[in-house]
Design a protein around this nucleic acid. Structure first.
Lengths: 104, 104
DNA sequence: ACTAAAGTTAAGTACCCGCTTGACTATTGG
DNA sequence: CCAATAGTCAAGCGGGTACTTAACTTTAGT
């Protein structure tokens, strides 16, 4: 969880994810539009892979990366739980107020 | 977006959010279970508020904080878009493969 | 075999983050 | 008024993070 959100907290890494939504890509393809050195991109990819957000296999001399939806779903679920929890709390509060509204 | 995910990337701040799901709380109440100094908690709260994840008003000498679901929902939506985007991509790919499967 | 392409590793640098302590400001109750 | 409570401001410290460049490894093309 911590790793997933830390990974997505970086704008560059989110760009990488957004690119990978369109389909798998090699390290070079991912690096090309990114105005930074290739090793920098590598480090970002490693962070994403350690977090379980992407997976990559190397065949020949080219490493191909693809998205792993499980990681995204985990983060999404956590956010959803907190949000709906709070909204239900508000609902319950609303009911309580309405109930106590006309006590005569 | 960047601010929201950076804010949630920290474990302490996620604890604060989880606490606030149960309802509003004062700075002191939030700090009490957190084995760190009060200014540290303040800084975390400021990060959360700047990110739009919580809101707080000060009445008298006590500041009360409450959750703001909009921020959570924004992050949740982004994650959902990426994930479903990728899943649809996989579906389309599956269809393509199946279509080309028996070309005779 | 020789060279270019695609990554990878290692080391170093500059900056950002979380936390601390200490001093300070407002409110509240006696 | 006096002191305790609840929070805030400011400076500083240590570790982590995002890059960089330079050197190296492996594979592919000719």
């Amino acid at each position: 969880m911590d790793q997933v959100l830390k990974a997505l907290a970086d704008g560059t890494r989110r760009e990488l994810v957004e690119r990978l939504v369109a389909g798998p890509a090699s390290v070079g393809e991912l690096a090309q539009p990114l105005d930074m050195s290739l090793p920098a991109v590598m480090q970002h990819l490693q962070v994403l892979e350690t977090a379980g957000l992407i997976r990559s296999e190397k065949v020949g001399r080219v490493r191909t990366c693809h998205l792993e939806p499980a990681g995204l779903r985990m983060a999404e679920d956590w956010l959803g739980r907190q949000r709906t929890g709070w909204e239900h709390h508000l609902d319950a509060l609303g009911d309580l107020l309405q109930e106590g509204d006309s006590p005569s």
